[in-house]
Amino acid sequence: MPPLEATLNRIPTNGIHANVAIAGAGPAVVLLHGFPHTWQLWNHIIGPLSTHHRVIAPDLRGLGASTRAPDGYDAATLATDIDGILDVLAEPIASVVAIDAGAPPAFLLATRRPDRVRRLVLMESLLGPLPGAEDFSPPWWFGFHAVPGLAETVLHGHEADYVDWFLTAGTQRRGVPPSIRDAFTDVCTGSEALRCAFSYYRAMPSSARQISDAVSRGRLAVPTLSVGAHPVGRALERQLRPVSDNLTGHLIPDCGHIIPLDRPQELLNLLTPFLSSTA
């Protein structure tokens, strides 16, 4: 169930319908989750942010209650999805906070539409081929998920165990509330749900080309905050540093990959002043 402050809305955008949690009033902030998440990744973040912001937290294409589209899992299409949500909600400009698979489309939206993104926060992700992450080896599941049809076949009937592994590893074995675990398990239960989830990995080559093209055309001009934890650490910050005009980097100690659930207060301590700043 959504927090008391949030309402769920079904919003048409870019040929799909996105399930979007909305809370609060004020300057808009979009929250983009990753794999294997839904908007509920932000359950501990939405309430505090909504006291001063209109918080917009969609389920990404194919995940949660959003349309299980046959294609469109590359970063550029996902960025257009978010652009369309803001159009429908009559928000001409918004800050964007993104983690994991949500970070590449957030980066593209900010580089392509700097008029639309006021501030950008990117967490625990890598931006395709950009230099700076050479010491980071992609985890084993990147290749496993990328092979069409393989993971769907192998994991059928074992989805909950598989998701549990990610939730345990992503919180340094601290775990997540059962309601959130169940929501994330639903994202990966059944062959069609698995296909959508793994389509993000299968679209990575296209997303990488889109990121390279964006960087070749111009710099990231909007004020940006890079937040690392384990395992990405400062690799994302190193990728962003040469292409950003205004970058702040931060590393949260003793924190797993799923920052909004593992260390929500530490994250809020970074987000609140950054998103409120007018500098």
Rank of each mutant, 00 (worst) to 15 (best):
R219F: 00
D254F: 02
D213F: 02
V96Y: 00
D115K: 06
L267V: 08
L4G: 10
P242M: 12
A101W: 12
Y73R: 00
A18S: 15
Y200L: 10
E5H: 09
Y162D: 12
W42K: 01
T185K: 09
V88I: 12
A101G: 00
P92F: 01
P260F: 09
I93K: 13
I211Y: 09
L240K: 12
F136W: 09
L267A: 10
I85A: 09
A25T: 13
P36W: 08
A28P: 05
G249N: 15
A76D: 14
L120H: 04
L4S: 14
R241D: 15
P48T: 10
S216V: 08
A94P: 04
H37G: 01
T185V: 15
P3S: 13
A197T: 03
M1D: 10
S206I: 13
P138M: 15
A203K: 10
P2F: 06
N14I: 07
F198Q: 07
W39G: 00
Q265I: 11
V215F: 04
T111I: 15
P223V: 09
H145I: 01
E266A: 14
L194P: 02
P48G: 14
L31T: 05
G170L: 04
N246Y: 02
G34E: 10
S66Q: 04
A279P: 00
D74S: 02
L127I: 11
L126N: 08
I99L: 11
I180R: 07
L268S: 11
A229I: 06
T67P: 06
P253M: 02
I85K: 04
S244Y: 06
A75I: 08
I252D: 05
W141A: 05
R217M: 12
P70W: 02
A279H: 12
I259V: 14
A146R: 12
A103D: 04
A94Q: 06
I180T: 13
I258S: 08
A28E: 11
G47F: 03
R238W: 08
A79N: 05
L127H: 09
H17V: 15
A23E: 02
A23R: 03
D74T: 03
E159V: 05
V243A: 04
H44Q: 11
L41R: 07
A221I: 13
R116D: 09
V163K: 02
G72M: 08
V222P: 00
N14F: 08
R209F: 01
L122P: 05
L31K: 07
G249A: 15
